[in-house]
Amino acid sequence: MSLQISCPHCGPRPVEEFLYGEIPVVPDSITDADARDLDRAFMRNNPEGPQTERWFHLFGCRRWLTLRRDTRTDEVMEAG
């Protein structure tokens, strides 16, 4: 099944209507300022499990939404 995303304004729609946007989270263990910039620019958390992420509803309201999705199953756990 194709991933479905629920837009709070437009309703449930196939993922193909949206653009993916990531929320970069630099781990606290990285303290050096340059190292934090590098991490933020390139490194990815890429979790196998739930992650909070942003989606842009390109084909509808053209607004960003936030949701939590389990990357192992594509199950959307909560919209925000």
Partner: peptide, 14 residues
């Protein structure tokens, strides 16, 4: 590739 980062092996009609 599919646009969402994912570890799911789901296949789509799209």
């Amino acid at each position: 590739i599919d646009r969402q980062p994912s570890y799911s092996y789901g296949s789509t009609y799209h």
